[in-house]
């Protein structure tokens, strides 16, 4: 059971990840770009391809992952419960399913580097040559 400890957790999160950067990654062969708005639409299920027309399927890090919270905040502008409400509307009306959850930066990289149609996001510190940086926040 998770009880939020807003003030304490907020302060600690800030000190922990205030300096971290999130990198959105794609397969090295992908030759396309994406703005924050484009990525927001893709991760909210409103768009299914990059602006250049390349089809992509987004991957999420698991709930509770600090990089995911950073991404939600910077790119989607929503917190976890707002996102949960947003996806509930789509799930229970058969209009969509949220991106699949993946356990770690390493797993995101492994999936993205093996599949030209997947994109994900990781902590900037985990970035390496197996994947291509699409955007940084």
């Amino acid at each position: 059971m998770k009880i939020k400890l807003p003030l304490l957790a907020g302060a600690l999160l800030y000190s922990c990840i205030g300096v971290a950067e999130v990198v959105v990654i794609a397969h090295p062969s992908v030759n396309d770009t994406a703005s924050q708005d484009d990525l927001s639409r893709i991760f909210l299920g409103k768009a299914k391809s990059l602006p250049g027309g390349h089809k992509v399927m987004p991957l999420n890090l698991e709930e509770g992952n600090a990089t995911r919270e950073e991404f939600n905040d910077k790119v989607l502008g929503k917190n976890d419960s707002q996102l949960k409400s947003y996806w509930s509307k789509l799930i229970f009306t058969g209009k969509g399913q949220p991106p699949k959850d993946v356990g770690s930066d390493a797993e995101v990289k492994a999936l993205v580097s093996a599949n030209p149609n997947m994109i994900g996001y990781i902590d900037a510190a985990s970035l390496d040559a197996t994947v291509k940086e699409l955007a940084r926040f």
Binding site: K2, K4, A9, L12, L13, C16, I17, A20, E62, E63, G64, N65, A66, E69, D80
Partner: peptide
Amino acid sequence: CVALSATA
């Protein structure tokens, strides 16, 4: 920096 919001 452990994930704070816990793993639901």
